[in-house]
Simulated assay, not measured.
Amino acid sequence: MDDIDDELRKLFNDDRLDVHVTPDATSSVVRGAQRRRRRRAAATGTFAVVAVIGAGIGLTQLRPLALDSADDLLPTSSSTASTTPPPPSVSTYTQTVTVTVDPPVGGVPNTAQNGTTAPNTTKSSSTSTTKESAPGVFGRLALGMSEEDALKTGSLGTAGTPTEAGCKPYSSVSNADPSTVLISSAKGIVRIKLPDTARTSKNIGTGSKVTDLKNAYPSAAVNGSELVVQMTATPAWVYVFENDGTAVTSVRMRLADNDCPGA
């Protein structure tokens, strides 16, 4: 150890190792220290400015983020609600009207190809069960009229011989046949025979063709040599058309409910 100490002492005492300081060394050191302080101060200021700016930018960026996060958490009301009132509801209806020009026969309407109800062109015709309607009146005489009332009309002619049933025949001012009018004491006038020149309301009379008679009165029923047409007036009565199969030979009106045979 002593050898080492001795060597160190020799080394430190060697003049060759001395550092020779120039006369302006002190001022140079001072100036270098000042330069270092200025650079340090400048660097510190720059860092401070940068730090402040960075902090401002950070706050600016952080604030919207915070607000956005808050907005996401807070309940919001819908701003898209419609303020326009709903359009008024409109109710529509369809009304279908079917117009029938003529009522269908048998209650079944004619249907056209397009499915609409077409006017019925079929004409109704009388059948054998159809009865004509007309009062049983000729001139001033009427079926069912009493003998007394008939005499008051002045239309009766000469009285004939009463029948076995008590029915009294009369001629009339328009027909000289002595059996033109037949009167029952209980039923009144039960028969009026029309003169050859007389015609019914459908233009049928003595001399008319049987075919014309049947066309005018489709409900005419055959009774021997007679064609009988029922009428529906009150009192009920019938037309009796005597014929030879081709033409009408006589026409008489007869009370439906009578007590005189052969009326």
Rank of each mutant, 00 (worst) to 15 (best):
K123H: 11
K123L: 13
S124R: 13
S124V: 14
S124D: 10
S125V: 15
S125Q: 14
S126F: 11
S126R: 15
T127M: 01
T127Q: 08
T127K: 05
S128A: 12
S128T: 13
S128G: 15
T129K: 12
T129M: 02
T129P: 00
T130A: 13
E132M: 09
S133W: 06
A134D: 12
A134M: 10
A134T: 10
A134E: 14
A134I: 10
A134V: 09
P135A: 15
P135L: 12
P135R: 08
V137P: 01
F138M: 07
F138H: 12
G139Y: 07
G139W: 02
G139M: 02
G139K: 04
R140Y: 04
R140C: 00
R140I: 00
L141A: 03
L141K: 02
L141M: 06
A142F: 00
A142N: 08
L143I: 10
L143A: 07
L143R: 04
L143Q: 04
G144F: 03
M145K: 05
M145D: 04
M145E: 08
M145Y: 00
S146Y: 03
S146D: 05
E147Y: 04
E147Q: 14
E147I: 04
E148L: 09
E148G: 11
E148K: 12
E148M: 05
E148Q: 14
D149M: 07
D149Q: 13
D149Y: 00
D149V: 03
D149A: 15
A150F: 05
A150G: 06
A150Q: 06
A150L: 04
A150Y: 04
A150S: 11
A150P: 03
A150K: 01
A150V: 04
L151C: 00
L151S: 06
L151Q: 12
L151W: 00
K152C: 05
T153K: 07
T153G: 08
T153R: 03
T153D: 10
T153P: 07
L156P: 07
L156G: 05
L156W: 03
L156Q: 02
L156A: 07
G157L: 12
G157I: 07
G157N: 10
G157R: 10
G157M: 10
G157P: 08
G157Q: 09
G157E: 06
T158A: 15
T158F: 02
T158E: 13
A159R: 13
A159G: 12
A159P: 12
G160Y: 06
G160R: 06
T161M: 05
P162V: 05
P162W: 02
P162H: 01
P162F: 01
E164K: 14
E164Q: 14
E164Y: 02
A165K: 10
A165L: 03
C167G: 02
C167Q: 00
K168Y: 01
K168A: 08
K168P: 00
P169N: 09
P169H: 09
S171Q: 10
S171D: 03
S172I: 04
S172F: 04
S172M: 11
S172A: 15
V173Q: 10
V173I: 15
S174C: 00
N175T: 07
N175Y: 13
A176T: 14
A176E: 11
A176L: 11
D177P: 01
D177G: 08
P178C: 01
P178N: 11
P178A: 05
P178R: 04
P178T: 06
S179L: 06
T180L: 03
T180E: 12
T180V: 12
V181M: 06
V181C: 11
V181S: 05
V181Q: 04
L182W: 12
L182G: 02
